[in-house]
């Protein structure tokens, strides 16, 4: 089966200072997969996503989305940043944050109208946050804030989703709710890339996985490459995860 390549990364090298944080990464992510990026803290997972999205400028290498540069394909891509990357005490409401997902399609100056509001409300509904739409965002719990970010990305109605630790600090119920949404996205033919920390759930949630620790250790279908050998190479210690049969 020959799949389209949704995201292609070639020879990507990124550094904040003199020391490279990502070194010579090559990556091909097929369309329609639900992929986990795993690796220890500081492995460069967030950096990889930010480089693909053009937030960071790489030292070398290139990124393409469906064979075109990211700049040309923005409309196809949505992003869920790490929750801690913003100040949740900002004076705004849940609905307002979700509406921000429509700003990209609106472009400069144009204000969101009824259509955008409707889309935002639908997204809130999907993540189960509709009752909280007028809530000031600082008065949401961590898991609720995470769901707001997810809703904001859903509103973008993209083909490719990048999510940085969407399960961080959420309870079991929310985790299941979120993973169900992700699986739904995959079913709709979208490509979803998720930075994930809980190795136990990788085989259950994902069908594709990338091991990353400054360099790319391995990438491929979970059933083929999610094994102790790759885990040990990535995390540096002897890892034993019983992969479910």
């Amino acid at each position: 089966m020959k799949q389209n390549i949704a995201i292609r990364v070639d020879d990507l090298t990124v550094a904040y200072n003199y020391k490279p944080v990502l070194w010579d990464i090559d990556l091909e992510i097929p369309e329609g997969v639900l992929m986990a990026i795993v690796g220890p803290n500081g492995a460069g997972k967030s950096t990889l996503i930010k480089s693909i999205l053009g937030i960071l400028k790489p030292i070398a290498g290139s990124v393409s989305i469906y064979d075109k540069p990211y700049d040309k394909q923005r409309a196809l891509v949505a992003y869920v940043p790490q929750k801690g990357s913003v100040d949740w005490d900002f004076p705004t409401t849940a609905l307002d944050v979700v509406m921000m997902g429509t700003y990209g399609s609106l472009g400069w100056i144009k204000r969101p109208g009824q259509r955008q509001k409707k889309a935002a409300l639908e997204a809130l509904e999907k993540v189960g946050m509709l009752p909280f739409k007028s809530r000031q965002i600082s008065q949401l719990s961590g898991g609720q804030q995470q769901r707001i970010f997810l809703a904001r990305a859903l509103v973008q109605n993209a083909s490719i989703y990048f999510m940085d630790e969407p399960f961080q600090g959420v309870d079991a119920t929310t985790e299941i709710a979120i993973i169900n949404i992700l699986k739904e996205l995959r079913k709709a033919g979208k490509t979803v890339v998720v930075v994930h920390h809980d190795l136990q759930t990788v085989p259950e949630y994902f069908d594709w996985v990338t091991f990353l620790n400054v360099k790319k250790i391995a990438t491929g279908p979970v059933k083929d490459i999610f094994n102790d050998n790759n885990l040990t190479k990535t995390y540096g210690i002897n890892y034993k995860v019983s992969v479910q049969e």
Partner: peptide, 11 residues
């Protein structure tokens, strides 16, 4: 609110 996100939207 979110500068990085704003950048990804093309602003």
């Amino acid at each position: 609110f979110d500068a990085d996100y704003t950048k990804t939207l093309g602003f």
